[in-house]
Amino acid sequence: MSLRVNALKIAPSDYLVQLRGSGIGAEIQSGGSIVLHRPAPVQILPGFAQGHVSVQDGAAQLAAPLLLSGAGSAQRLRILDACAAPGGKTGHLLELQDCEVTALEVDPVRARRIGENLQRLGLQAKVLTADANAVGDWWDGNLFDAVLLDAPCTASGITRRHPDVLWLRRIGDIAQLALQQKALLQCLWSVLKPGGRLLYCTCSIFQEEGDAQVQTFLANNNNAVLLPSPGHLMPQNGANPQLLNDNQPGDHDGFFYALFEKKSA
């Protein structure tokens, strides 16, 4: 069980002291995430209700800092978090930088969870319930400085925690989801300003939802530049850190990241 510490309220090292003082064993991973020795109900985590900490996998915690890297702080960034529920990445963006975030979610029930999580953290974002592909229904015409697209996917990267995912998928799911991801990438690229950055990510280990998607996007958009990105991260248990030498250290789900920059005209 991985935790993300809200840097606006407490330092990871100080929170680790609180955990151990409550009899909860834990370790700090690279990047500041905390992994509990054993899963625990959130109700017993110190300061959870006050927004000191959130439950978020270590791989998912890479999204916000990666998107904000190199963005600077000279101006207040306008950021779109598409497919944002339950709001973990939305909250992380706001914890790391004073920015204006629009969180987009097509499911009304899941959209309410974004608001609930932000309220617990003491943060604010513009939460919209809409289909990201239907740009005319939600976009005000002002280009975004950055876009985070955590696209719908097979969730094949979370099977170490949810092995039932494999039984819930059908043979044609990968191809269908890949088409949906392609459409979302192309659509959201249009609302990004020149010089802006778009981070594409999925909790999938399949090439069709990762590197193959990136190569197709680059071939279709000559104004897109692929920046240094983690790429495919395979699921990893902290007990076997040497399974893949180039893997992200620590305990995390499988994930894919690709960071694009839109060339200025």
Results as ranks from 00 to 15, higher is better:
residue 11 A to C: 07
residue 14 D to G: 01
residue 16 L to I: 01
residue 18 Q to K: 00
residue 18 Q to A: 00
residue 26 A to R: 00
residue 27 E to P: 03
residue 30 S to R: 12
residue 43 Q to N: 14
residue 44 I to A: 10
residue 47 G to E: 01
residue 47 G to F: 01
residue 49 A to I: 06
residue 49 A to Q: 15
residue 55 V to Y: 06
residue 57 D to F: 01
residue 59 A to K: 08
residue 67 L to Y: 03
residue 68 L to W: 06
residue 70 G to N: 11
residue 70 G to K: 13
residue 72 G to F: 07
residue 72 G to D: 13
residue 75 Q to R: 15
residue 76 R to Y: 05
residue 83 C to L: 12
residue 84 A to E: 04
residue 89 K to S: 04
residue 90 T to S: 14
residue 91 G to V: 03
residue 95 E to T: 07
residue 97 Q to L: 04
residue 98 D to H: 09
residue 100 E to T: 11
residue 101 V to H: 11
residue 104 L to G: 04
residue 108 P to S: 13
residue 109 V to R: 05
residue 118 L to R: 05
residue 128 L to E: 05
residue 132 A to Y: 05
residue 135 V to S: 15
residue 138 W to Y: 07
residue 141 G to L: 11
residue 146 A to E: 10
residue 149 L to H: 04
residue 150 D to K: 13
residue 160 R to Q: 02
residue 161 R to G: 13
residue 165 V to L: 01
residue 183 A to L: 15
residue 185 L to D: 01
residue 190 S to L: 14
residue 192 L to H: 11
residue 193 K to Q: 10
residue 196 G to H: 08
residue 200 Y to G: 03
residue 204 S to L: 05
residue 205 I to S: 04
residue 205 I to Y: 06
residue 217 F to D: 06
residue 218 L to M: 07
residue 222 N to R: 11
residue 224 A to M: 10
residue 227 L to C: 06
residue 236 Q to Y: 00
residue 240 N to L: 11
residue 245 N to Q: 13
residue 247 N to F: 03
residue 249 P to E: 10
residue 251 D to L: 01
residue 256 F to A: 08
residue 258 A to C: 08
residue 260 F to E: 03
residue 260 F to T: 02
residue 264 S to P: 03
